[in-house]
Amino acid sequence: MALLDVIDLVVEFPTRRGTLRALDGISFSIEPGEILGVVGESGAGKSLTGSAIIGLLEPPGRVASGQIQFEGSRIDRLSPAQMRPIRGRQIGAIFQDPLTTLDPLMSVGRQLVETMQTHLKLSDRDARARAVQWLEEVGIPAAAERVEAYPHQFSGGMRQRVVIALALCAEPKLVIADEPTTALDVSIQSQIISLLKRLTESHGTSVMLVTHDMGVIAETCDRVAVMYAGRIAEIGPVADVVRTPSHPYTEGLMGSIPSLEARVERLRQIDGAMPRLGAIPQGCAFNPRCGRTIARCFTHRPDLMPAGATQAACWLVGGGAA
């Protein structure tokens, strides 16, 4: 059984000009111990998917239909009070800016202890020892002394390490990491990514890694979901999506990333921009930017269909051309 099942999830934002569909029928699952990458341009809905899962959608956003199942039971209809023990204990979260997660007025040790004692039955002494252990495990030098330090006394990279410790210390089964390295320099980014990978592997934690950086995905994830205009365009094993993409959008996206390996005269570019939520075209949302459209692309919306090793939401792979 999958750890997390998202089934035909629809998230809507009612506005006075009508209801905006920010997520429109998303389905995917995460297996125990798996790292799933979610990639897409800004506004594609990747962060929203994460917020919907941990029940932190900004009002007036709401889950309009579909289901989110965690270990087989639905968590999308839970009240905030029912959700609280799940968030942290079962599903941890890491955000882009560590300062939004850390309490500036509490020492990092205190924050770790409180988080652990909220979710696990631990004595003060055990919790404290575990806090130091966690800081050591995420690579904070001199952890025993720094356990009393406050967030502002850490550098950006060190703070993100503390956040990772906080997200993992209650031993959740799933961690949702939303752009965890975007604010960091490349050399720090690689430290954080390997740390996250090593820790989740050793604790058997599943990860949903949301990022716009295809390089990070390629290096970190087992599978990847490529999102476009509130839908999944393609999902499959990372190597296949990167090397032999099936959806024209994925293909364009891979071609538009400059590579360290070789220099090309011109990058492949996808003309135009992703449509805004209120103005998503009929049929396939990618049709205005796609070079290989057929009549059906303008009238019918493709769902995910098997395409070699991956699944793609495109009529070209689904036998729509036949």
């Binding site: 990279g157 290096e219 990167v242 360290l260």
Partner: peptide
């Protein structure tokens, strides 16, 4: 070398690495 080593690249699917420590 550190910078080039640190950059995640789409050609490096599943690469294992030992990241360089330290901060600026």
């Amino acid at each position: 070398r550190l910078l080039l080593e640190a950059i995640p690249d789409i050609s490096s699917v599943g690469r294992r690495r030992t990241p360089v420590g330290g901060e600026v």
